[in-house]
């Protein structure tokens, strides 16, 4: 059991460190003005998604790190869960923005987007929160399962 707890602690700590790193990268890149693209990862350069969003990702990482020690304790578990919620807000708003962009056909185009245009809107690169999303879901699933067991 202790070993399992240690493993969970390490995983959440690693997730926290990566999240903090992404948050800092977002803030620093947007402070520079221009965004960056590294293969399928995009660090946005604008103050809203990069600056403001970067702070949120940073806080999410800090929540993970502050709660990773002894996740079995409910207050720590709540911090970790909240970190995930922050990631969901970032990723969720990005996905929602993709959906709203993919439907209309554009200023000079038809009413609705073509199939290639629709699917093309979902193409990479993606912001860091999108990559953190699956891990945040796994973390919350573990915490909810733990809560149910308790």
């Amino acid at each position: 059991m202790a070993e399992k707890n240690n493993l969970v602690m390490i995983c959440i700590a690693i997730l926290g460190v990566v999240t903090v790193a992404f948050g800092l990268a977002d803030i620093l890149v947007s402070a520079g003005g221009d965004g960056t693209e590294l293969s399928i990862l995009e660090i946005p350069g604008d103050m809203f998604r990069g600056g403001w969003g970067g702070f949120i990702v940073l806080f999410a990482g800090l929540f993970y790190l502050s709660g990773c020690k002894n996740v079995a304790e409910v207050h720590n578990a709540s911090k970790v869960a909240m970190g995930s919620v922050l990631i969901w807000i970032m990723a969720g708003t990005d996905i929602f923005a993709m959906i709203t962009e993919s439907i209309p056909g554009g200023e000079d185009g038809p009413w609705f987007n073509s199939l290639s245009g629709f699917l093309g809107t979902y193409a990479p690169p993606y912001a860091p929160a999108m990559f953190l999303l699956p891990f945040s879901l796994v973390v919350v699933y573990y915490i909810l399962k733990q809560e149910r067991t308790r």
Partner: peptide
Amino acid sequence: ENDVVGGAIFFSIL
């Protein structure tokens, strides 16, 4: 040019 394949993969995952 739209990256249709990449977009299709992500959309299906979604």
